[in-house]
Amino acid sequence: MSKLDLFTPIAAEELPATAKKLRRHIIKMITAAGSGHPGGSLSAVEMVTALYFRVMRHSPTNVDWVDRDRFVLSKGHAAPLLYAALAECGYVPTEELYTLRKLNSRLQGHTDKTATPGVEMSSGSLGQGLSFSIGIALAARLNEQDYRVYTLLGGGECDEGQVWEAAMAAPHFKLDNMVALIDNNRLQIDGWNKDIMNVEPIAEKWHSFGWHTIEIDGHNFEQILSALDKAEAIKGQPTAIIAHTIKGKGVSFMENNVDFHGKAPTPEEAEQALKELE
């Protein structure tokens, strides 16, 4: 095999600036699209930034490199976040971000594996990503490969029964090469999780299913990196990182505001948001 052109990780100190860049992309592309999901994209920015720019081994110029670490976006409505990260890493041109949700675009409203370079899984129907990740993790074991699989789930997504089928299966198969990151922003479309369908105590649930469980502030890079580090050291069981996050994080009027779960900002709101993200 020819020499691999691996993505060069950035310094930990540079992560906040990159996170801000991704947030700006998210606002701009959803505004250009006129629809999309800003709230749940913004809440997971730090986790995705840490993974793509610091933790995962991957190659934007050799997208299908068989030993790459995998990121599986189970909460497919956060596609703008993934696209922003892929663009900043060099998988797609940043100008292309503004084709999001438009006809003939490679950037579908919810992720489509066949459409976008770097997207591992098609999603958009919640609850399916962790099962998919188990398959990827099992393949690594069969092939004696040492890549790792990171799956991002929403807190509300944990309503889906399939999540718990998968949560039961990963420890059963002793898959220590996978990490579930739960973006627990506590809101779902109809309102607060605790009012719609109470998922708490969420960490206890994952723990009782057999996962090594770590609770963190999902916007704190130090805690994210340390949790991902610890996960790598855990043997014989998968790790669940319960990330306490704020929906709409980084834009004052979107924070904890469920109205921005699946609504694009107006051009004026976008301008205000971008000002806050300067």
Binding site: K113, E120, M121, Q128, G129, L130, S131, F132, S133, I134, G135, I136, A137, L138, A139, A140, N143, Q162, A166, A169
Partner: peptide
């Protein structure tokens, strides 16, 4: 889902 992940690999 698991089968799909295996197939994707």
């Amino acid at each position: 889902g698991i089968a799909s992940g295996l197939a994707a690999s």
